[in-house]
Design a protein around this nucleic acid. Structure first.
Length: 644
RNA sequence: GGCGGAGUAGCUCAGUUGGUUAGAGCGCGCGGUUCAUACCCGCGUGGUCGGGGGUUCGAAUCCCUCCUCCGCUACCA
């Protein structure tokens, strides 16, 4: 049986939903709605990723328990999706018990099969230098720095054997040209995989707000391993196999380009191969919306746009209803730029689309046709009669093109197909001139022409439903099809399917035209008013407080072999252990001159591995590109002293 | 630093395997129409296709080189 399973990423529950989340989700919604119109069973799944240190931290900062914190965020997401007319079927949370059970189950299963192994952090260690060294860094088997012999060490962590799947993955990508889209991303992934995949560390030292490794309470399961499994657990894996088999695999998984290469296009398929499950048909990575710097009107509270705020503003400017404004924004986001590429948001572009495409071409077609029905046909849809169906070819062409473009998620091209049809309809109305036919008393011909145009509007209403569901409903209503309880079905996107003898119900213009020049002046004025006290890139005191700064004393400094810009520092920040920090200051400072220097350290930065060396913090230094001077204290302070 | 992509009309972009006068939408100008939200329809405006060199009977399209922007990646945590 045919089915359509589509996913968005599950969004990290660390902050409010923004335009990036919304863009992904709206795109997925379009696919889902389109397939529902085609009467294909659809499962459209989204959700939230709720584990990890960052969530625990943010919760603490706001004086909440992690659970309270994520519950609150989940509320915001669900509200946003409702406001943006998102028709998701499932909303999974990684804190759902059945998901957590699934993650542990899969972890155990892969550990039994040998795909997950308790890793020995294959490395060498120089005791005097306290340095971890990779095989390639050794000089004659000894420490490259002090020349003394090194010891082999094993730090325990669980690894997933990604490397074992490099060849199979490569083969799969090459034999499935549509697996990763768009093409440019596919090429990137290919070159990434060709370098060879490294085994992924899938556990961390135990944190409270994580899923524990089964049978090993000292470790937690890595959040990405946890998160990716949502795509399986939300369709019933592993205990509801009937349901699972019905939906698996996904027809398309939409992700942002930032999480494609490392996660969805490598780790994720490797996990599925290890579980012996089919891979998704398509992974589609889309681009970003950035605010247009040449257009200062973007709200000055930082550059993250709240899509609902934008819609409310559009509603205010245009006097359209909020639902129509939301749909207009949905239209704009998917029409303006090619899905997959980056684009910049500007009010001018949004308003231009609103006027030209929505108000003029679509809205006005409806608004010039309905009065004709009222005037010449007593407000009742006529019989098609002989000669009707003249727009049949145009309708078929638009439908076919739309279907073709949507296969490749080219939303913009799909919408272009609809607008070509609208253009044909407008032209048809002009050339046939029902008002002239009426004067000449050619009633039969007049009815045929009006029928054809109404029929065409009906088809357009169906075709725009995935993009603008509420607008579609409104047009349906005005055509009288709502009250007549006619359903929208994709198969009815053909000529001569409009029922007759239905009384139309004209309403106010759906898209009230905007005076763009005036609107821009107004927005500009408001924007200046608001941005007066705060410059464009300010942050609040609360945001600043999230950065934890402490005084630290450098107790050791070493060069890192093979890296000419990096130093490995051991810094005392008042904790029981000194911290290892990697700093890109080797070309400006000698290791020796740094000893006992007191610097300022960002202590709550997430750890990172740089050139194979773990770094647990950041040293502050002046200089935009190159570090020019270290930030130091002017008198001795105890290590660990808070800086603010 | 490495790999990749892109630079085409005022703006946003199409341009398939090199082939007659380089296209669309928006904007702008003119005309038509009057059913309509100063809308719609038609016509027009506008580009030495990033610079330079080369291959070819012929290049936006292939090759070389330079410039600019972007993405991924890497020793900027």
């Amino acid at each position: 049986m045919k089915k359509f399973y589509i996913t968005t990423p599950i969004y990290y529950a660390n902050g409010q939903p923004h335009i990036g989340h919304s863009y992904t989700t709206i795109a997925a919604d379009v696919h889902a709605r389109y397939h529902r119109l085609r009467a294909t069973p659809v499962l459209f799944a989204t959700g939230t990723d709720e584990h990890g240190q960052k969530v625990a931290h943010s919760a603490q900062a706001q004086g909440m328990t992690p659970q309270e914190f994520v519950d609150n965020i989940v509320g915001s997401f669900k509200q946003m999706w409702q406001r943006l007319h998102i028709s998701y079927d499932r909303f999974i949370r990684t804190t759902d018990p059945h998901h957590m059970a699934a993650v542990q189950h899969i972890f155990s299963q892969l550990r039994e099969s040998g795909d997950i192994y308790l890793g020995e952090y294959e490395g060498w260690y120089c005791v005097p230098c306290e340095t971890y060294l990779a095989e390639v860094e050794l000089v004659d088997g000894c420490c490259p720095e002090c020349g003394r012999p090194v010891e082999q060490v094993t730090e325990q962590a669980y690894f997933f054997r990604t490397s074992a799947y490099t060849d199979r993955l490569l083969e799969h990508i090459e034999s499935h040209p549509d697996f990763i889209q768009p093409k440019s991303r596919r090429n990137e992934v290919l070159s990434f995989v060709k370098e060879g995949l490294r085994d992924a560390c899938v556990s961390r030292n135990r944190m409270e707000w994580d899923i524990p490794v089964p049978g090993d309470e000292s470790q937690s399961i890595y959040v990405w391993f946890d998160a990716l499994i949502n795509y399986l657990s939300q369709v019933g894996y592993p205990d509801k196999l009937d349901e699972f088999n019905r939906w698996w695999p996904p027809q398309i998984q939409i992700v942002g380009k930032d999480i494609l290469t490392r996660f969805h296009a490598t780790l994720w398929p490797a996990m599925l191969m290890a579980l012996d499950l089919p891979l998704p048909d398509v992974l589609f990575a889309h681009g970003w919306w950035i605010t247009d710097s040449g257009d200062k009107i973007s709200k000055s509270k930082g550059n993250i746009l709240d899509p609902y705020e934008v819609a409310l503003e559009l509603a205010r400017i245009s006097t359209a209803t909020t639902a129509v404004a939301v749909d207009s924004l949905r239209y704009f986001l998917l029409r303006q730029i090619t899905f997959g590429l980056d684009g910049s948001f500007s009010w001018r572009a949004l308003l231009a689309r609103f006027n030209a495409d929505l108000a003029n071409d679509l809205g006005n077609l409806l608004n010039r046709t309905l009065p004709l029905v009222e005037r010449y046909l007593n407000g009742v849809i006529p019989e098609p009669g002989p000669g009707a169906g003249e727009l049949s070819d145009e309708i078929d062409h638009a439908r076919t093109k739309f279907e073709h473009e949507l296969v490749h998620s080219d939303f913009s091209a799909a919408l272009t197909a609809i607008w070509e049809l609208l253009s044909s309809a407008n032209k048809f109305l002009d050339t046939r001139g029902p008002w002239a036919l009426h004067k000449d008393a050619k009633q039969v011909e007049l009815e045929a022409v009006i029928y054809d145009v109404l029929d065409c509007i009906r088809v357009v209403a169906i075709m725009i439903e995935p993009f603008m569901p509420k607008v579609s409903d409104e047009i349906w209503q005005q055509l009288g099809l709502q009250s007549a309880q006619i359903e929208k079905r994709w198969e009815d996107c053909r000529a001569l399917k409009l029922p007759s003898d239905i009384t139309i119900a004209p309403g106010r213009p759906i898209f009230p035209r905007v005076d763009i020049k005036r609107a821009m002046d107004q927005l500009q004025a408001e924007s200046e008013e608001q941005s007066e006290p705060t410059a464009a890139n300010t942050i609040s005191i609360d945001e600043f407080k999230q950065v934890e700064l402490r005084v630290g004393t450098i107790v050791e400094a070493h060069r890192i072999p093979g890296a000419d810009k990096l130093l490995r520092l051991m810094v005392d920040v008042g904790e029981s252990d000194t911290r290892q920090i990697v700093a890109g200051i080797a070309q400006q400072f000698n290791p020796r001159e740094l000893l006992d220097v007191q610097v300022i350290v960002v202590t709550n930065l997430e750890p990172a591995t740089i050139h194979g060396v773990e770094s647990h913090g950041m040293i502050l230094a002046a200089g935009a590109d190159e570090p020019e001077a270290l930030v130091i204290t002017d008198s001795k302070c105890p290590p660990g002293t808070i800086v603010r």
